[in-house]
Every structure is written in structure tokens, then in C-alpha cells.
């Protein structure tokens, strides 16, 4: 293992995060705070409890997931897209590092950033609503797994994207709707049976459901199914990245 190589990539990426602290950190916090003001305080007080949890508290896990998923994808994709875009990727391709080390460095840094943001939002939400986390250990594990999986997805996007437009397109057209319709703001059980079945094809449902279970002990699907879903998704992304580096797709001519 080239530990110095992993560390170099990781440190370099984290340094980028601190250089752009305002945009990478302050903006998601402000956005989430606004959600809490609108859905938690203003509208939420008029919505009845969901499975015995006040609506304001109910949306906390969903909001954290919403931010963490979008952040992981954007961090993961930008980290590898940027060197490709400005040409510094030559150094990475000629370095004695294998795909797994590159992924550990880039995806590790991207996941760290979004985990940090997720925790800050968790902290912020305590200012607006009251809630307890029943399984804090499992909650953190779930959060980490989500950060890593979506940073991996972002990494694939970053390699695939040929320009900034494509880089924005997939998150905008696919991921944001998936997260919004994945139960961030509602329980799947509130839907009609047809849409409940449709929702089960949305992988994000399993994430939000599992994450919410760690908070309140309530969920749409079982926690085991949720964990299995995250692991399968992560494995799939890793397999795709392994193939990308083996074949050189979009990287080596």
C-alpha cells in the first residue's frame, strides 16, 4: 500500500475544503436551517405527528440525509473532475498508486467533508426541534456508510462527466428527485399502495428509513434491509470504479 500517496490525496482534498469553507459548509447549514424554519416551525406545527413523532423532529433524519447525499455526490465528483478538467490528472495517472488507494484518498476526503456537514446539521437541528437518538452508534455508522456510498457515486460521475454541465445534470435530474421522493419529508406509509410499491424501487427510501429508525425506532422497511441496501450500493459503486481504472475509461487514452 502506498500510504503516503493516500495521505497526500486526502490532505490535499481536505485543504481544498478549508479553502472554500464558506461555500462548502455555510451554505448547506443555512439551507437546512431554512427548511427547519419553514417545515419544522411554520408549517410543521399544523401537521399531525407521524408515528408518534412530531413532524419537526420527523424530518430531521430526512434533512440530514438530503444534505449529506447531495454533498457527498458533489464533493466526490468535484474532487476527481477538477484535476481532469485542469489537466493535473496526469500526475495521478503516472503515480505508483492503484485504484483503491486513489479511491481511499478522494472518496475518503469527500466522505469526511459531508460527514462533518451532516454532524453540523444534526447540531443545528437541536436548536429548532427536540429529539433523542435511540441508537447513536448505529446512526453514526449509517451516516458514514451513506457518505462513503454517495461519494463513490459522485466519484464515478466526476470521471464520467466531460464538462461542468454534465457534472450538475445527474445530481439535479436524478439524485435530487430521488432524495425528495425517498421520504425525506414524509413516511412512505402515507402514500397510496401503488406509490408505496413504486417507492420501494428508490434506493434512497432504504437509506432514509434506516437512518430514521436509528433516531426514533420507526421505519418503513426493516433496518436489516436498509443496511443490506447500503452495502450493496457501495459494492456496486466500488466494482464500477475498479472497472474504470482497469479499462482506463475516460482516463487513459
Amino acid at each position: 500500500m502506498n500510504y503516503y500517496g493516500i495521505k497526500a490525496i486526502y490532505k490535499f482534498e481536505i485543504a481544498r475544503f478549508f479553502r472554500t469553507l464558506f461555500q462548502s459548509f455555510v451554505s448547506p447549514v443555512i439551507a437546512t436551517s431554512l427548511y427547519f424554519v419553514v417545515f419544522g416551525a411554520a408549517i410543521g406545527s399544523r401537521i399531525q405527528e407521524v408515528d408518534g413523532v412530531s413532524y419537526g423532529s420527523f424530518i430531521v433524519p430526512g434533512l440530514i440525509m438530503l444534505t449529506v447525499i447531495t454533498q457527498s455526490i458533489s464533493n466526490g465528483s468535484f474532487g476527481i473532475f477538477f484535476p481532469k478538467f485542469i489537466g493535473t490528472i496526469y500526475e495521478l495517472l503516472s503515480a505508483p498508486v492503484n485504484f483503491f488507494e486513489i479511491v481511499l484518498g478522494y472518496v475518503g476526503a469527500a466522505a469526511t467533508k459531508s460527514l462533518f456537514i451532516g454532524l453540523v446539521i444534526l447540531g443545528t437541528s437541536t436548536l429548532f426541534v427536540e429529539f433523542n437518538v435511540i441508537y447513536p452508534g448505529l446512526m453514526i455508522l449509517f451516516l458514514i456508510l451513506t457518505c462513503v456510498s454517495f461519494a463513490l457515486l459522485g466519484f464515478i460521475l466526476g470521471i464520467w462527466a466531460k464538462n461542468f454541465e454534465q457534472l450538475q445534470l445527474v445530481p439535479l435530474l436524478i439524485v435530487t428527485p430521488m432524495v425528495f421522493l425517498g421520504g425525506s419529508f414524509y413516511s412512505i406509509s402515507m402514500l397510496s399502495p401503488f406509490w408505496q410499491t413504486v417507492s420501494l424501487f428508490n434506493p434512497v427510501v432504504y437509506l432514509i428509513s434506516g437512518f430514521r429508525w436509528c433516531f426514533f425506532g420507526i421505519s418503513d422497511v426493516s433496518i436489516t434491509t436498509s443496511l443490506l441496501a447500503v452495502f450493496s450500493f457501495m459494492t456496486l459503486c466500488l466494482a464500477i470504479i475498479a472497472w474504470i481504472f482497469k479499462s482506463g475509461w475516460q482516463l487513459r487514452t
Partner: peptide, 21 residues
């Protein structure tokens, strides 16, 4: 091809580390 916002010393540290030193 260089990272414009990085400092000279940090970009060298990155390159050295990347090559396993």
C-alpha cells in the same frame, strides 16, 4: 497543469507523497 489556488510548497508535498515518499 497546476492547481492555481494551492501554495507552491503544498503542491510539492502532494507530488512527493503521491509517489510514495
Amino acid at each position: 497543469s497546476l492547481e492555481s489556488f494551492e501554495t507552491v510548497m503544498n503542491t510539492l508535498r502532494f507530488s512527493r507523497g503521491l509517489f510514495g515518499k
